[in-house]
Design a protein around this nucleic acid. Structure first.
Lengths: 335, 335
DNA sequence: CTGAAAGCGCTTACAG
DNA sequence: CTGAAAGCGCTTACAG
């Protein structure tokens, strides 16, 4: 039905081996032979069948990126960066939405799409490293996001403790005294909330400010809705905060919405810092001060490491990459 | 190396055919046989090899969604909806970022990932139906977005003329007289800008308002940046508008930013309407009035139609689906 | 229901 | 460089 390698070989008057060599850019092909083959490929509009190739080679040049939800701005931007980084290297990214709980594990469990996938980058919500270890199907796997526990996987993350320290210290440097934190309970098993709170508390302590549990809001998620609700709680306090460090930008945008509704000025009454540097925050009014992880760096290095693992013999030691970040000071703290 | 179908058959004491029957849910399997096979599958942790299956059956149960950029909120939300709709039906969505120009055509040209993909949903930016027709590799293809020209493909779109008419009429009903439009030049060959302008002008005409070319801004793209720049142009006019209909929400969010910077009140001084209903607009302050296409409906029906085409004998007549929408009135016009 | 076998379209030793 | 052939792991007629 479809044109096959052998059709191309017949038309070019060479062996299938030679056609395969041309397609795969192997050496020892004369320019003349190559030209003949390429002409035949063009004439027949031939495209290699990736299923056959994948079956034969045991490699598909597909990798998966498993994220909680692709419509969330941070992950959407990450997905875009991964796709670009992978395309540059001739491989394709399959984006999997885990949508929380068990679905995440199930993905890994389900054998990485029936062996179609060469490796996976996994941003877990509820899965602990132990669970993932039990479920992993032996293919290369890189974890994204903070890992409090050791685990046996490569992992890539921002130094969240340091970043949270920097964000909080920035607020302190503005003279703020009652600095709240929104999102301390978030991030599930990957411990985002716990890790960022650590940096937050550390900064307070370094400045001689006692941390007030009433100012640490857990919330139920990391979306605008949660940020808005947490901010309402904070405003209802007998002594509301004069600054808020939100553990991601969506929380911060929700908080800003509540502050606007309450008629409070930002940063006049309350200064706000986020985390992630999503595009919405840059255009918001006021624009959002935030921790900006280098997403391109993250995608590039993670894809490179994964491909190294896929190609590698296997037993290299576990690697841990730290993503560079900057603190982007914008109107929400420097109006 | 990996466990194969034959390993499962051997362990269960049945033929490979029977194992295959169990996996593919074919009839005429006794409960006892099924149980034996399933036990063997579980014991060996067997997962079918999708490359082999795909090679043999000529179907992969993968479809592609080709969109301009996945980090753009509307497309991110669409991608999420497609993934869910597909997963429900046991198929997987491969999201391709075309990033504009020729890349879009290239995707279609490149033979849909070497025949891995069963069909494609394509949201073109610059490709005309004619170009796509020439490049299509014969597999089912559905176009997303307005098609001014006929084309020979199935397509799914909002009735943008009517939606733009509704949005503009809403502004007129608020008593606005100088209603600008941002984005009239956008959407490339798919003609989003032209189609929405048509509805916009129609509404003005119906209300007896002459349309003023100075109030129709083309801009270069459909992002916040473009909306912000266009709004600045409008404010520099001798007679600035008292309302703006932006052809997508990103343009509207950019415009709102410019208005905030200029110290103008929304909707007091200028009322703003968008198109797409992305989450950012719902939480923005002021929240954004917008045309809200039913994205779940879109994804569900498009996936269903594509699967019908893939399964179908082929020569059914071209189908055109119209996506339902509502006008969501929020603070930016009803503060 | 079973068993033996062909074939999907590649890649890759193997012998020249 | 070429040619003939095996084999990746499935599905599916085919004969029983």
């Amino acid at each position: 039905m479809a044109t096959r390698l052998s059709d191309v070989a017949a038309r070019a008057g060479v062996s299938v081996k030679t056609v395969s060599n041309v397609i795969n850019d192997y050496p020892h092909i004369t320019a003349h032979t190559r030209a003949k083959v390429e002409a035949a490929i063009a004439a027949l509009d031939y495209r290699p069948n990736v299923s056959a190739r994948s079956l034969r080679k045991g490699r598909s040049d597909f990798i998966a990126l498993a994220i909680p939800e692709m419509a969330s701005a941070y992950f959407a931007e990450l997905g875009a960066a991964f796709s670009r980084a992978a395309k540059k290297r001739g491989i394709t990214v399959l984006i999997e939405q885990t949508e929380g709980e068990s679905a995440a594990e199930q993905l890994v469990l389900d054998g990485m799409r029936g062996q179609l996938i060469d490796g996976i980058v996994f941003s877990p919500i509820t899965s602990t490293p132990a669970k993932i270890g039990a479920a992993a199907s032996g293919k290369p796997l890189i974890l994204l996001g903070e890992r409090t526990t050791g685990g046996t996987f490569d992992h890539v993350a921002v130094d969240s403790v340091q970043a949270a320290f920097d964000a909080t210290t920035h607020l302190i440097s503005l003279g703020r005294q009652r600095i709240a934190a929104i999102g301390v309970g978030g991030g599930g098993a990957s411990g985002t909330g716990a890790v960022r709170r650590k940096g937050y508390r550390k900064a307070l302590k370094a400045a001689g400010i006692a941390h007030d549990p009433a100012l640490e809001l857990a919330g139920t998620g990391y979306h605008r809705l949660d940020g808005a609700a947490s901010m309402r709680e904070l405003l209802a306090l007998p002594e509301p905060p004069d600054a808020v460090f939100c553990f991601n930008d969506l929380l911060a945008l929700g908080a800003l919405r509540t502050l606007a509704d309450a008629g409070l000025s930002v940063p006049g009454d309350v200064a706000v810092v986020g985390f992630d540097d999503i595009e919405d925050g840059r255009y918001h009014s006021p624009s959002l001060t935030t921790i900006s992880p280098d997403k391109e760096w993250l995608a590039e290095h993670t894809v490179a490491l994964l491909l190294e693992r896929i190609a590698g013999s296997g037993e290299a030691e576990r690697r841990s990459l730290t993503v560079p970040y900057t603190l982007e000071i914008r109107e929400s703290t420097a109006g």
